[in-house]
Design a binder for these strands. Structure first.
Length: 267
DNA sequence: CCCGTGCCCTGGCGGC
DNA sequence: TGCCGCCAGGGCACGG
């Protein structure tokens, strides 16, 4: 599932192919992915100026508009030289160089939205995002967590608190920080919050350098697979020995999410 | 406002 | 072999 490193990988692999290209036609094959009837019309003849990433969103900066795309669980992009439509293709952007940028999504969970060029960061959904770990102020996050009555895992998955982390990297971050995912946030000491943020930064950077994580059915643009799955220490490692203490890694549920934990190391 | 639950959606897998 | 039911989960709507 694409989290910050996977989205960054998609963004940077797409960008060189798209900059300077103009969208000549848009076909939406599954309407629930968009929020407006004139989606196609609004994008025609818009030039792609640059791509960006905010949290788990890809931002397409266009001539007059800002298009944002969230891949949710299994959204992918392909650049195709032909007009063939494959299973789970839902949006086709026809470019002026003859290439088709195709959005493909098995689960149909992804979303697109067209926002204004100047205020897109102040409009939903981007306005709801907390800072990414690398921009987070430890003091500020500590104060937010003090006031909350949820588990640390739930808080780290909440994009309003901190953005970019998903199920995989939260598990990895908490393992590295030796903190149990069910620990209530108000019980965390300042140094623990600091450690969590530092580890999140370190893990996300390392994952970006490896092109993200490829597990389950997720792979990024144009079939490029990430390699960070080989570095996972806890996520997916049920019944395997913990790398620190050899005790069996367990799988539990935290706010409905499959969660991997070493109960000996994580307190 | 805060938090928990259910929903969206499809494919893969375990059980029989 | 086939069918059924469950599971995977990011973000959002909704209700208490």
């Amino acid at each position: 599932m694409p989290e910050l490193p996977e989205v960054e990988t998609v963004k940077s692999s797409l960008e060189p192919h798209l900059i300077g290209k103009t969208i000549k036609e848009v076909k939406v094959l599954y309407k629930n992915l968009i929020d407006t009837d004139d989606f196609e019309k609004k994008l025609v003849n818009q030039k792609i100026i640059k791509l960006n990433r905010v949290g788990k969103f890809i931002i397409f900066h266009l001539t007059d508009k800002t298009l944002i795309s969230h891949l949710r669980m299994e959204g992918k992009y392909f650049l195709r030289e032909n007009n063939d439509i494959y299973k789970h293709d839902h949006v086709v952007f026809k470019l002026d160089n003859g290439l088709n940028l195709v959005y493909n999504d098995v689960r149909k969970f992804g979303r697109f939205k067209i926002l204004s060029k100047d205020k897109y960061l102040n409009e939903k959904p981007l306005s709801n995002l907390g800072p990414e770990p690398k921009n987070a102020n430890v003091n500020q996050i500590f104060r937010i967590l003090k006031k909350k009555n949820v588990s640390i895992k739930t808080a780290l998955l909440d994009q309003k608190v901190i953005s970019g982390l998903g199920n995989i990297y939260v598990d990895e971050t908490l393992f590295e920080s030796k903190i149990h995912p069910l620990k209530k946030t108000y019980k965390l000491k300042y140094f623990e919050v600091k450690k969590i943020i530092e580890n999140a930064i370190k893990i996300l950077e390392s994952a970006i350098n490896m092109g993200g994580t490829t597990i389950r059915t997720y792979y990024s643009t144009m079939g490029i697979d990430g390699k960070f799955q080989n570095r996972l220490k806890i996520h997916t490692k049920i019944n395997q020995p913990c790398l620190n203490c050899k005790q069996k890694i367990e799988k539990i549920k935290v706010s409905g999410r499959g969660t991997y934990v070493c109960k000996n190391c994580q307190k």
